[in-house]
Amino acid sequence: MDFKDYFELSQLYASYAQAVSSSQWELWPEFFTEDCIYRLQPRENYDRGFPLATLSFESKGMLKDRVYGIRETLFHDPYYQRHIVGTPVVLKAEANRFESEANYAVFRTKLSELSTVFSVGRYIDVVVRTEQGLKFASRQVIYDSEMIPNSVIYPL
């Protein structure tokens, strides 16, 4: 992997974090290919090879449906999220395809409350080059804690 590709990969991670931290939900699906996978799964299940996931989407259309749900149908106390993402580690690089991993932390701030740690874990990604640039073909969000708040509304 050359510097140009690594810089583009780093920008993909940073742009993703910026979009979901600033509630630009309509941008979220655009980070993915049409036939993509997005899974939110506890570390315990991932490590044991269990398929059960908290959220599992299998296409960009499903991600767009989730955005519609966030904007139009889900009712909850409003809150903000802030994503802090570590430098991606490239595990495998092929022509136009990269397997990478990065640690993340998401903080949640409810109105008139202190910020709290919402989720900590790692992203396990397959990134491919498209005509529009690098996109996630697969993003597995593996969170460390066995306990999560009773609802996950926004993407991590």
Rank of each mutant, 00 (worst) to 15 (best):
K64T: 04
R122Y: 03
I153P: 08
F75I: 15
K64E: 01
Q18Y: 07
W25M: 06
E94I: 11
Y16N: 04
Y154W: 09
G121N: 07
L156T: 13
D5V: 13
F50H: 12
V117N: 05
S112I: 09
F50Y: 09
T130Q: 03
A19E: 01
R43H: 09
G133E: 12
L27G: 01
P51C: 13
G69V: 08
E131I: 09
G61S: 05
G133Y: 01
Y68H: 02
G86E: 04
H76C: 09
P51V: 06
Q140C: 12
V152W: 03
L27C: 04
T87K: 08
D125A: 10
A53Q: 07
S112D: 13
I37S: 13
S115W: 06
I148F: 10
P29F: 01
K60S: 05
V106R: 00
D35C: 13
E44D: 12
R39E: 15
R39F: 10
L91C: 07
V85H: 04
S119M: 08
I84L: 09
T33G: 13
I84F: 13
L111D: 10
L9Y: 03
Y104P: 14
D47W: 02
V127N: 08
F31L: 03
S115Q: 07
L156I: 15
F107S: 05
V126L: 05
A53K: 02
E34L: 13
D65T: 01
V141M: 00
V20N: 00
V117Q: 00
K110Y: 13
R39Q: 11
Y123A: 11
H83E: 06
H83Q: 07
G133M: 10
A14P: 12
K60M: 01
V89D: 08
E72H: 04
R66H: 00
D144T: 12
D2H: 10
L40A: 14
F57W: 07
